[in-house]
Design a protein around this nucleic acid. Structure first.
Lengths: 237, 237
DNA sequence: CAGACTAAACCTACGTTGTAGGAATAGCAA
DNA sequence: TTGCTATTCCTACAACGTAGGTTTAGTCTG
C-alpha cells in the first residue's frame, strides 16, 4: 500500500481531494444534519458553526455546501428532522377512536417530548416559520380531531392556533430555563424566593414560594387542561 | 481654527479623542439602547452589529463598552426597555375595580401592543429569560387579579404561567409571520390555499380556506378567551 | 494649583465566522 | 479517448465581537 502513511503521526491533513471513491459516501444530507443536531445537543445553538461541524466530520467546511444550501438551510433541516421524528398518527381512523381531548393530549405530549429530546435545538423548531410540508403533519393531527368532534372549520383553525401558541410558548420557556431553576435545587430556589419576597410587590410576595420553583411538566399539563376544558365546553353551550 | 480641517472633504474621521467636553453627552446607556432599538426596527435583528450601531452614532465601536457590557447585555437592555414601556397599573387598588377577566385582558393587550410597536425587536423579549426586577411588574399585574378573584397561591402561579406561555407563543408567531401572510393579500393567500388543497391531508384540505389566512388580532382574542373562560369556570365548579 | 486619578472616547489587533470563487480528482457518458 | 459532472479541498475576503492599550478632559486631593 505505498509509502504515504507512517510518518504523518500527529495531525497532518490527509489531503483527501477530488470526487470520493465509489461507495464511500463521506457526506450526505442525512449525515450532515445528524452531525449538526448532535453538535447542537452537545454545545448549544450559539456555539455551532460550519467550521466546528466540519472539524467534527473531519471534512472541509465548504464540503457540505454540496448537500445543504448554507447555515440557515442547515438549521431548517434540523427543524424538519425534529418535526418529522414525532410520528403523528397517519391514518385518519385513529383519531376517531379517541375523543377530542385524548387526541389533543397525545399530540401535545408527543410534541413536547420531541422538543425535550433535544432541548438546545428546540428553539430552532419553535422560532422558525415553517411552511414546509412537514409542518402540515402536526396540523392535520390537531385539526382532524377538532372536525371530528363537531367544530366548524373556522373555529377549528382558531383552536388549532391557540393550542399551537401555547405549545410554542410553554416549550420556549421550558427549554430556555436554567436547569437549576427546574426543581429541587433548594439553594438556588431559596435564594430566588428571598429575592421575590424583597420585591415589594404584594401579590408577588404572597406567592413567592410557588414562583420560586417550576415543575415544567405539571405546568404544561395545567395549561393544556385549561385550553381543552374550554374547547370541550364550547361544544355544548 | 488651526490647520486640521479643510482638505478632509469627503469622509475623514474627525479623530475626536479623549474624554468628551462637559455637557456633550455623546453617549449614554439611554442613547445607546435607543439607537440600538431603532436600528433593530429598521434593519432587523440579524442585521444588527456593534459596528453598524457605531456607524449610526458616529462613534467608535468600542466606545459603548463604557455604557453597556457587550452585545448580549445590549440586547438585555433592549428587552428591559420594551418591557418597562408597557406601563402596568402601579396601585393595587386598580385591579379591584375591574374583575379578573378585564384585568387580564387589559394586561395581555398592553403586552401585545408593546411587542407590535417593535415587531422586529420583540423576539428579544419573548426569547430571553428575564430574572430582572423589570420582569416582575407584569407578573404582579397578572397574579394580583388572580388572588383577588379567589385563586389560591399555587393555582394562581400555574394560571399565570399558562397565560404567559400563550402570550409568548402567540406573539412569536405574529411577529415572525411574513407580513404578506397576515391579511388581504389575495394573491399570496390564494396560492397558499391551493398548496394546502394539494396536501392530501383530509382535515387540512377541509379547512384550507381558513388555514390560508390569518387575522392575528382575532386569533389572539380567541385564544385569550379560551384561557379566561377556563379560569372563570374554575372558580365555581 | 499641581499632581494623581478617573471616565469616556478612540485605535489596533486577534481570532472566528459564513461563504464566494476556484482547482483538483474521480467516476460516468459519448 | 474525450469530455462532463459530482464531490471534495483550498484560498481568500469582508464582517463580526471584543481584549488590550492610548489619549485626553474633567475631577478630586493635597
Amino acid at each position: 500500500m505505498g509509502h504515504d502513511g507512517p510518518m504523518s503521526s500527529v495531525k497532518a491533513k490527509p489531503a483527501r481531494r477530488g470526487r470520493p471513491p465509489r461507495g464511500s459516501e463521506l457526506l450526505s444530507r442525512q449525515r450532515v444534519l445528524e452531525a449538526a443536531l448532535a453538535l447542537v445537543d452537545e454545545e448549544g445553538l450559539d456555539a455551532i458553526s460550519m467550521r466546528k461541524l466540519a472539524l467534527r466530520l473531519d471534512v472541509d467546511p465548504m464540503s457540505f455546501y454540496n448537500h445543504v444550501d448554507g447555515k440557515d438551510a442547515l438549521l431548517d433541516g434540523i427543524a424538519e428532522m425534529m418535526l418529522s421524528s414525532i410520528g403523528f398518527p397517519e391514518t385518519v381512523g385513529d383519531s376517531e377512536h379517541k375523543g377530542l381531548r385524548e387526541s389533543m393530549e397525545v399530540m401535545a405530549r408527543k410534541f413536547r417530548q420531541a422538543m425535550l429530546d433535544h432541548p438546545r435545538a428546540a428553539p430552532v423548531v419553535l422560532t422558525r416559520q415553517l411552511p414546509s410540508i412537514v409542518a402540515l403533519a402536526p396540523i392535520e393531527a390537531v385539526i382532524g380531531p377538532l372536525l371530528a368532534a363537531g367544530y366548524p372549520s373556522d373555529k377549528a383553525v382558531h383552536a388549532l392556533r391557540s393550542v399551537l401558541a401555547f405549545l410554542i410558548g410553554a416549550l420556549m420557556r421550558e427549554v430556555g430555563a436554567a436547569p437549576t431553576f427546574s426543581a429541587s435545587d433548594s439553594e438556588a430556589s431559596r435564594q430566588r424566593e428571598a429575592d421575590l419576597r424583597a420585591s415589594g410587590l404584594p401579590a408577588v410576595m404572597a406567592t413567592a414560594a410557588h414562583l420560586a420553583v417550576i415543575d415544567h411538566e405539571t405546568e404544561f399539563e395545567f395549561g393544556l387542561a385549561l385550553l381543552l376544558d374550554s374547547l370541550d365546553n364550547q361544544l355544548r353551550p
